[in-house]
């Protein structure tokens, strides 16, 4: 069997409590401002993280958060509860982020929901075992920056799936609902994102490992 990997742990207990969410929705629909503020407190951090990973700019991410909640509260009556509230909010935020990306780079952001096979080719090429590096080499600011940079450079069709599934801790089904993809498509994109990141990080860690070998 495989060694167990830690699960993403960003979900707070309130986000998993269906009865609480139902009461919150009823209060928001009734125009209760405290309920809207509660909803913001519960969900704005996750929405911000998705927006930031999508557009890469903190100010723009903040604008997307604002747009998301504005849209959500305006259209809360149309929310049918087929997904959770957080999944619905992620969906609004994702669409807002995508609109902005398309405005900036209309030729580079795919409107086709199918992953571009060429762009996301993930056949492993880097075959150096850099796991031998001492643990402290993985925890440096430089290594973390490299990882952040790699995530920000993930091809756009893979990035949102990766962020929601792996960093925000949504299930495969929830990720599929949020991004309007099939479950199998989410699985394929997540797998490609992981292989893409492995390949990308291997360049950095291989060089680090080889430099360390030369010194010793």
């Amino acid at each position: 069997m495989t060694k167990e990997l830690p699960a993403p742990t960003l979900l707070s207990p309130e986000l998993l409590d269906e009865a609480y969410e139902q009461r919150l929705l009823e209060r928001i629909r009734a125009g209760d401002k405290t309920a809207c503020a509660e909803c913001i407190d519960l969900h704005s951090a996750g929405v911000y993280r998705l927006a930031l990973r999508m557009v890469g700019d903190p100010h723009e991410a903040e604008d997307i958060v604002q747009e998301t909640f504005l849209n959500a509260f305006r259209t809360i009556d149309s929310f049918e509860g087929r997904s959770s509230l957080s999944t619905w909010l992620y969906r609004i935020a994702y669409n807002a982020a995508l609109m902005r990306l398309r405005k900036k780079q209309p030729l580079h952001v795919s409107i086709d929901p199918h992953v571009d096979e060429e762009e996301t080719a993930t056949t492993p090429v880097q075959l150096f075992d850099w796991c031998c590096l001492p643990e402290e080499d993985f925890q440096t600011a430089e290594a973390r920056n490299e990882l952040e940079r790699a995530i920000s450079e993930l091809p756009e069709p893979l990035r949102a799936v990766f962020v929601l599934r792996e960093l925000e801790g949504l299930s495969t089904e929830e990720t599929a609902q949020a991004l309007d993809l099939s479950v199998s498509n989410v699985k394929v994109r997540l797998h490609r994102a992981r292989l893409w990141l492995r390949e990308r990080l291997s360049g950095y860690f291989t060089e680090l490992a080889q430099r360390s070998q030369e010194r010793n």
Binding site: T2, K3, L5, P6, A7, P8, L10, S44, A45, Y48, R49, L52, E62, V65, P124, Q126, L127, F128, D129, W130, C131, F138, A143, R144, L147, E148, I151, E166, L167, R194, L195, L197, R198, L201, S202, F205
Partner: peptide
């Protein structure tokens, strides 16, 4: 090597501190 480095990659990003708003 691919399996070990892929597992390590997953471990690294799952333990990355999330950006704060």
């Amino acid at each position: 090597v691919v399996v070990d480095t892929l597992r390590k990659t997953i471990l690294l990003y799952r333990t990355l501190p999330p950006p704060s708003p």
